[in-house]
Design a protein around this nucleic acid. Sequence first.
DNA 1: TCAAAAGTGTTGACTCTACACCCATGC
DNA 2: GCATGGGTGTAGAGTCAACACTTTTGA
Lengths: 233, 233
Amino acid sequence: MYGYPRPAVATDCVVFGFDGKNLKVLLIERGREPYIGKWALPGGFMRMEETADACTLRELKEETSLELKEREVEQVGAFTAVRRHPGKRVISIAYYAALAREKYNMIKDGVHGGDDAVRADWFNVKEVGELAFDHNEILLCAMERLKENLHTKPDSFSLLGDSFTMSELHSLYEAIVGKELDKRNFSKKMLSAHLLEEVEVNEVVERTVAAKRGPKGKMYKFSKESEESRENW
Amino acid sequence: MYGYPRPAVATDCVVFGFDGKNLKVLLIERGREPYIGKWALPGGFMRMEETADACTLRELKEETSLELKEREVEQVGAFTAVRRHPGKRVISIAYYAALAREKYNMIKDGVHGGDDAVRADWFNVKEVGELAFDHNEILLCAMERLKENLHTKPDSFSLLGDSFTMSELHSLYEAIVGKELDKRNFSKKMLSAHLLEEVEVNEVVERTVAAKRGPKGKMYKFSKESEESRENW
DNA sequence: TCAAAAGTGTTGACTCTACACCCATGC
DNA sequence: GCATGGGTGTAGAGTCAACACTTTTGA
């Protein structure tokens, strides 16, 4: 068995972001064949001495200059269709990351380390066009996973900043579950879960930093204790 | 990139079974190095012209003579630790299957096609010892996934036969979620979900076929209409 | 001043949990 | 006849969904 031909192994990562209103995904414009010029998920080939997790983080840094930690990415699954890569046998292990709001604005256009990626940019998840390879399928699976994890894992919440308004939280939920949620019921439920605490408005810092946010309104943050209790609610 | 060394790619499959009382997992005794003589999940190396799904099904057939369909297995994820295989770089794409009760008894001891596996046998999931490679970890992840899918996917139900008693269904649930469930509440909930219909006891066929089942009791089956409505309950 | 978004409670339906005894069967 | 497992109902608590108007703010 050992001498048999092997498929190449790559990783791809679906990086989700949130601008306060819409759920976004970070894509790169490919700088080489195949699919040169097309938009694709950041990713690349795995090296012998690294895990798939490490590979994702490395490629993310190379192509988008984002530096994430292992606990910030979650595996979605392996994509192994025989012809998913034109002319070559490549399987891909897909990941997703819910990017902390603070890092959202750090993505700049331009070339990021090498010519794999010409540039990186954010797209509304609802308006993503045809991507390279099977990346549309991967994106769908990642969104599905993000939705599944919404009620059991805290990581989706990092899409918000350190503090946020109730309507931002509301928009985020609606964007992820893909349907409208009653505003009153939503805030009632959130508040009664004791995960949030109100942030005094004199912390204008945040308000100012967060530039083009919605009009105004009370701001919240996740309470310290909630870190663990967010496990299951 | 194309000339770079590549890890070997394998698949492993956690096959769950149910004997009416306990949740079981199908293991094989390895017939070759490494880990010769140890118990392991059935699996093997992926070929260039097949998907990981197909690879799992093929290996399952070769090592345990089980013939499953693609829709009967679900991917758990890729395991890519650098030293998960001694001396060689192998990543594994793991699957799980919830085996239909009818097929549960078909597993016989003995050699099954080739010397990869000396024999195959069922083990109580709670009593599995130390397995080859990182297969204990894979098993845990698969159990986790099975649990997650219990309330959203119908496939766990195939662990039961075409017909079953309420207490078998109850035992299966307890085995999967890993905690006790109130008997009365459980059957009430099940019955009110309209997924089940009672099977007339004159269908003694089933009762007889199902040999060493519990004492007796009403038998149920899933109603035809429930096939789709089982999606979300 | 007008338009857009923020903030706020109540009710009814439903769902979940906790809890105990009698009956039939097989040994 | 005894032990094991099968079968069944109710009450209370909690949770969820539906529903509209007033206030503030920014243009």
